[in-house]
Amino acid sequence: MLRDITLGQYIPGTSLLHRLDPRTKILGSILYILALFIVDDLPGYLVITVFSLVLVALSGLPWRYVLRGVRPIFYIVLFTLVLNFFLTPGRVVWELGPLKATEEGIRLGIFMGWRLLLLVLTTSLLTLTSSPIALTDGIEYLLTPFRGLGVPAHELAMMMTIALRFIPTLLEETDKIMKAQMARGADFETGNIVQRARGMIPLLVPLFVGAFRRADDLATAMEARCYRGGVGRTRLRELKFAARDYVALAVSVLLVAFSLADRLLP
């Protein structure tokens, strides 16, 4: 059961979004979030919505697939809508017993829910269009300028790579331990919440023991191969900005500038 889970939703492709440098996509996502949290009126939201839909179209991914990513936040959006409808003070337009929906509340609720939907929809494109290796490389490159401040860029990227390498292994191991303990009579499925939580111990202990043993073996293996850390290390893949990356970044900056104008100008 656990083994069916594949990490990363990367869908290989050759669209414009796929070909962008991972750094561009990470920075672009951050700028997009910034713009999304700055805009505050209908024209602003419409422009950003059109922008998002264009991005999805440019990614060349099936719409159905992209929209599926929004499902997990459905309840939170609903909750945001309802609370804002009824708890914002203002002119009452609709009453349901003691609950009073206000005009301001409906406006605010729709904007907030809309913002959350766009947030998840658009930022999911980052992982859908970039391979795990490209993303890790991108993060290492982006962190490198902060090395002077004590941020261990290479080490962080190496630890991320180690983690990504071990996720499938540990998922498989979790599955194996659960089955082994069930074969010994462990019960993960029934009982009240206290019993179920206690039932985690026979899973947690062997899982952690096994994981730390693997970490030890890995460190020994890396030492034996003379791993020396980031200084002077060469790379198989060098990241290089192309013209399209500069264009994409310029568009992202323009989006933030637009949202600022939208906020500040009446």
Binding site: I5, M159, M160, I162, F166, T174, I193, L207, A215, E223
Partner: peptide, 28 residues
């Protein structure tokens, strides 16, 4: 920050992987 030893990096990396595996262990 004190420099990380290789063994510490291995522990941290594997622990971060373990966190992901734990995300799939759910008690409804």
């Amino acid at each position: 920050m004190q420099k990380l030893s290789l063994r510490e990096m291995a522990y941290i990396g594997v622990f971060a992987a373990l966190m992901t595996a734990l995300g799939y262990v759910e008690i409804p």
